[in-house]
Design a protein around this nucleic acid. Structure first.
Lengths: 339, 339
DNA sequence: CTGAAAGCGCTAACAC
DNA sequence: GTGTTAGCGCTTTCAG
């Protein structure tokens, strides 16, 4: 016989299917005897309820859709880890799909996930398309967005305080003895780009140190590398001793450029990043950077989503997580510190 | 009204639900007029069929379970990308779960995925537990394993020819003018470990160069680093000019050790890896290594699984994919080559 | 406490 | 061509 159903269990146990259901779900009292018989039958048949059928009748799929731009991007994978672990705790499975930035695909995925009756959706992307967002909202299915360029509006997200963190890093660099800093900023038309820049500027202003700015067109390692020459120029012009990149990838790209062009990090120039990518600790020199708690971002998003689904709690619009500076080898110290 | 069902469509179109079903699935001819009415109603209501219900009655979930050890491991994420893209082509969704090596969790996940009626399972792990495998087989649900330590038996997998590839790399190194090679091998009790070593030995034997061997207890970057001192000793004893690590992570760890201990790669010592991890091209010096086609491994596994599900083709036991040497900066050239 | 019966949303014979 | 009906495997009234 193929896979057993509740009927088979009922027959073997000599009770009705309702009784079987009741012992399985402990939804209603069942006499000890029936209970035992049912349990025996379940064990004997190695019966496992068909979750599809349960989902259908209970209108509850226990599935969350996770839409990422690309699961191969390491920080996204870290977020997914968090989502997944919390999911398992609450018995939620995740349906994963990647968009590769294709907006057509994005829409299809959302449709499809809805037909699969996912109970909620988490979107992880660098930038989420407004149309997609609109679509998502129209479905009125709970969702959380994890989006680097998120402008606070009325959706739910989990983030860190980019501004104060960049301020902190700037202060740290000055504390280490750096008096002229080059800042590589990312897309300043985005909230995060602006916040990071603002934090840096604030730090520079309060500490009264010199600064120079350069914009990255995107946040790939390649771009960090390609900007090398320009950055070198800025360093020379400003007598800078450190480059603070608003993304680790940019910092790594730049360090690679230094490597290829005979500048030693941190002996000749210090470099700090932002994000604590997987690679930041492996690279040599290991990158001094700001830890973005990706795993936690995923975990908290998931927890929020689940609470919302259980009506235990309304999703708060924005959750701000702490972040910290991770000191590694890429920043030289010019001051004697007594820690 | 909440989400519309097939009934609502039927009512609005003034036909029976069968007719609606028929036009949706094009399963049977329908008069042009009914068809139009149905299509109109569907559009008007923005009706989308409940896939859960369809799955239940058709006994076909269109879901594949993907069990990874940890989606945060970059090569695993690469494999998942391949799986996912092919999946979408064939309208398969993926249900993702990570085990973190916990065998308890592994079993639960398999159970759970089966109750969710996944049609097949792909397991991605460095080492798959025999018990898990047994469980999986007992479910008799099609599955593919992507396992570094896989010993060919009777399951289905996709792999590359580790032996000949290592042989090729060894020859390449000799061609570049290296006459004494240190090989960092991984767990030689595993098939892959053995094959890699065999390939290396073969190359060394045919080219009649000197060689030294050292075993890695695992394949983490840290281990590569920790072995640094021992490797240094081997290099000195054998006058070696190159270290060939059987995993990129080991190579990277070792290069980091060199960096921290004043040996320059490739000026003082060359290093080659295996795998072409994401980091291999980003690291400086960029790592000369062997490209393992992770994406393709995922894609092909998925395609095989789907073919099997469609009964178009039996899963071949083992599929061997091509791989190639990626020349980058970590290996010095001592010979003049006219390419 | 327990069983019969209705029904979740859909597909697939089976009649007409 | 089309509607009726019987399920898919399960939960949940509703009687008893």
């Amino acid at each position: 016989m193929s896979v057993p159903t509740i009927k088979d269990v009922a027959k073997l146990a000599g009770v009705s299917i309702s009784t079987v259901s009741r012992v399985m779900n402990e939804s209603k009292p069942v006499s000890p005897e029936s209970r035992r018989k049912v349990l025996d039958a379940i064990k004997k048949l190695d019966f496992k309820p068909n979750e599809l059928a349960r989902s259908l009748v209970m209108r509850k799929s226990n599935m969350i859709g996770v839409i990422v731009k690309d699961i191969g991007i390491s920080y996204m994978a870290q977020i997914v880890r968090g989502i997944e672990e919390i999911g398992r705790m609450y018995n939620y499975d995740i349906l994963l799909s990647s968009t590769y930035g294709d907006i057509e695909a994005e829409h299809k995925i959302i449709e499809f996930m809805c037909t699969k009756q996912v109970e909620g959706i988490i979107m992880i992307s660098e930038k989420i398309n407004p149309e997609t967002l609109f679509k998502l909202k129209s479905k009125n299915i709970p969702f959380v967005r994890l989006d680097k360029f998120y402008e606070y509006t009325d959706e739910h997200t989990v983030s860190i305080d980019y501004k104060s963190t960049c301020n902190k890093m700037t202060n740290y660099l000055v504390d280490e003895g750096h008096n002229s800093i080059v800042f590589i900023s990312e897309d300043v038309t985005s909230r995060i780009g602006r916040e990071k820049l603002a934090g840096f500027n604030e730090g520079v202003a309060t500490r009264k140190v010199k600064s120079a700015l350069i914009n990255a067109k995107d946040i790939t390692v390649q771009t960090g590398y390609d900007m090398g020459e320009e950055i070198f120029k800025l360093i020379k012009e400003n007598n800078s001793t450190v480059v603070f990149a608003s993304e680790d990838s940019l910092a790594i790209g730049f360090i690679s450029y230094c490597y290829d062009n005979g500048l030693k990090v941190p002996q000749d120039i210090s470099v700090a990043g932002f994000g604590d990518d997987l690679i930041a600790s492996i690279y040599r020199p290991a990158l001094t950077t700001i830890e973005e708690p990706y795993y936690d971002m995923g975990a908290i998003s998931m927890r929020k989503l689940i609470k919302e689904l259980r009506n235990e709690e309304k999703l708060k619009d924005v959750t701000i997580l702490p972040s910290r500076i991770v000191e590694r080898g890429s920043v030289a110290t010019f001051t004697k510190k007594n820690k």
